[in-house]
Write a protein that binds this DNA or RNA. Structure first.
Lengths: 332, 332
DNA sequence: CTGAAAGCGCTAACAT
DNA sequence: ATGTTAGCGCTTTCAG
């Protein structure tokens, strides 16, 4: 049997409460006995039983991270795991644990209510992908400590956190302006689906308007191949853009293909820049200048807020995390 | 306050032990009272307190997944998270939870000993990347329920699980032979570091030897650019290979670049195939035939073994998971 | 088939 | 500064 607080008390010739207090560094215990008990604990290899601890304290020291963890998500959405990583690291630093949980959009409200009521965790961070109004109601009404990753697309009392894609757009525009680029073409994603591109564009426009400049855009660039053929046509123009800004690496790759095929040099003849530092902006030739959004950092911040909310349950957080940074490379 | 087993007992006019048994579907309780209690539980919105449960049962229903979760790992190692996903899904199905934990190679032995002794989890799945002999000793000596993801590179009594890269090699070779390809060139990774390529080669050779064929290899293809330039030279030959097999998508991308630049057609003039269905084998033109290793499936299996070992602590598992499959596309 | 009672190992009033 | 004691909410013998 593992050594318990009783064994320690016996060995230290004191009561279990003194041991408990000593180990929890209570100020009502003399430094001398604390020392003694700590030494003894070390010697006997005592490890407090976390189960008993959670039970007595009525909290777990655990936060839940809930998202749709369907097969393939590791590949399709590495961002998600970068966030998870940041969350875990912060929690770990503060003595908390991270429990990862798959939930599905349709069943999430019940699942989450159940998980929280059964007190498996002290709070929950959840990906906006599984959020519904119904779930929002549960979260708010039952005042469950929560934080949504991603801004909900409906008004609510929810606590959430999101990357400022607008800021990313501004940063990108300012960088390009500084570099002397004026004729900019922005390749965006699906017109309906891709809200992120739209928000980036808003940021780009905000920055460019200050200089009374405009920007050309092409939407519905949903994959590599579309970008490649679009780029082919663009290069047929008499006057080509000075720089192509892509909303993701795949599009950038498509552009690069066409630019090369045409025999043009990057960045001499035309520059190329992309949002997201992933997956190949650093491995292609030339390496691509990219606007990176630091998902790890966002996870870290999210965890920080989460713990604050666990401590102050009436706290509400609604904020943008402005973490985009430029990684300057050879393509601009 | 949340509704407890006492409230239920009062409502059902019976003792708490009967309630407990009813809810745990014990056969010593009549079907009638079970029904009554279940209905009442539903009605009152009773959720057993998991903390109390774990405490009383002396187990958590939690398994730990430990790996090095440094910043960037979500991007650099999506495989890892695909495994995690598979693990979580299996555990969830069996009523278990997954706790994700960052550990570092150097401190892992202490961290893990501490985690397990404090009974935060019933078992631990850990990534071979953080495994050391010292840790192996801890795991074995203290007979902690564990499973290593990846075959340890030293002999031990550890339980582990790994993808059969040899099988993947064989599968690849057989596919190519069936397709009628004979002159095969295999682009491998770093000669020292990349054990996986070596194991794939072993499988390739095994299959080819049966047909008394050989294979050409080029090692130290550590990135896109190396593959691109290597490919340029290869295409200068009088007699070029019939098919290029790459150990990862980046190399394939490099090859593709050169093949196109030379004006050759894939697969008419030269075929291309790659290990790993990621990240761009499906988005390039032509789409690439790939040997996919199903990491999700491996995670799933790993979780299955883990639960077995939790139930039978003296069980040992050392096995290869043969999950590679061919995804045939346009490039061959 | 049901109930009484003894924990599970620790925390946190409260008393000394 | 230290000790006593009553839980935390549930499971699990053991009687009945």
């Amino acid at each position: 049997m593992a050594v318990t607080i009783y064994d320690l008390a016996k060995a230290a010739d004191c009561s279990i409460s003194t041991v408990s207090k000593a180990l929890n560094d209570s100020y009502t215990v003399s430094e001398a006995t604390k020392e003694k008990i700590r030494a003894l604990a070390e010697e006997l290899g005592y490890r407090p039983n976390e189960r008993a601890r959670s039970f007595a304290r009525k909290k777990n020291g655990t936060v839940l991270f809930a998202a749709d963890l369907s097969r393939g998500v590791g590949f399709e959405n590495p961002h998600l795991f970068e966030i998870v990583t940041g969350v875990e690291r912060y929690l770990d630093e503060k003595g908390y644990s991270l429990t990862l949980k798959h939930v599905e959009k349709t069943t999430a409200p019940d699942q989450i209510r159940s998980l929280m009521h059964s007190e498996q965790a002290d709070g929950i961070i959840l990906h906006a992908g599984v959020l519904t109004k119904q779930l929002a109601t549960v979260l708010v009404k039952e005042s469950l400590p929560h934080l949504i990753i991603g801004k909900p697309d409906f008004p609510s009392q929810l606590s959430w956190m999101d990357i400022s894609h607008e800021a990313a757009g501004q940063i990108a525009a300012n960088y390009l302006l500084d570099k002397g680029y004026r004729r900019i073409l922005f390749l965006m994603g699906d017109k309906q689906e891709d809200q992120i591109s739209a928000r980036r564009l808003a940021g780009l426009l905000a920055a460019l308007e200050e200089e009374e400049l405009s920007i050309e855009t092409m939407a519905d660039m949903t994959d590599y191949e579309k970008a490649r053929t679009a780029m082919e046509q663009i290069l047929e123009r008499e006057k080509i853009p000075e720089v192509i800004l892509c909303t993701n690496n795949y599009l950038a790759m498509g552009c690069m293909q066409s630019i090369r095929a045409k025999g043009l040099k990057i960045p001499k003849d035309i520059a190329l820049m992309t949002f997201d530092n992933y997956p190949f902006s650093m491995i292609v030739q030339p390496t691509l200048t990219a606007i990176e959004v630091d998902m790890y950092e966002m996870g870290w911040q999210a965890a920080r807020f989460m713990l604050q909310m666990i401590k102050k349950p009436n706290l509400q957080t609604q904020s943008f995390c402005t973490t985009p940074t430029i990684i300057e490379r050879e393509s601009t």
